[in-house]
Computed example of a mutant assay.
Amino acid sequence: MQDPDFDPIADLKSSMDPIKIGARLKAVREANNLRPSEIADLIGVERTYWSRAEKGHRHIPDDLALRLVHHFGVTFDYLYLGRISALPHQLAQRIQAQKRA
């Protein structure tokens, strides 16, 4: 039986907090052994923009998310909602290993 106070929309919104998205961006970068400047150059964004995005100070537009999907195999579900189960197995393992490190 589901908790009557559970609000799935509020739960999703919480996952989309810019700070949490930034942490996932950092996890993707670290799982690929890249410095912030390297990933910014690779996906074609300003280095300061990437740095602010990782800290949760900048919004991640769809076109940037698409570049991350293309280059690293991440999913929108992971980037925006934190659903690691949606990632390719090897990438999920690297991200989880980074969290433990």
Rank of each mutant, 00 (worst) to 15 (best):
D7L: 03
Y49I: 12
P18D: 05
Q93W: 03
N33E: 12
G73P: 00
Q93T: 14
Q2R: 15
R67W: 02
G22V: 05
A97P: 01
A27R: 00
I60K: 02
R52D: 15
P61D: 14
D7K: 05
S15Q: 15
R52E: 14
L68Y: 00
R58L: 14
E54T: 03
L64V: 14
I84G: 02
P4T: 10
A101M: 05
A10Y: 05
E46Y: 08
L25G: 04
M16P: 09
L64T: 14
Y49G: 06
Q93I: 13
H59D: 11
R94A: 11
D11Q: 11
G44F: 03
H59E: 13
D77F: 00
V45H: 07
K13C: 05
A23T: 06
L87P: 02
A101W: 05
S51G: 13
L25T: 02
Q98T: 11
F72V: 05
D77K: 02
L68T: 01
Q90M: 04
R100D: 13
N32V: 10
D11T: 07
L91R: 01
A53D: 10
D17Q: 13
P88Y: 01
H71Y: 12
D11C: 07
R24K: 06
R58N: 15
G22I: 09
V69L: 15
S85W: 01
D3V: 11
N33A: 13
G73R: 05
L64D: 08
H71R: 13
R83K: 15
K26C: 12
A10M: 11
S15Y: 02
L81M: 06
F72G: 03
L91G: 13
I9T: 15
A40L: 07
I60Y: 01
D41Q: 12
N33K: 14
A97E: 09
A53L: 11
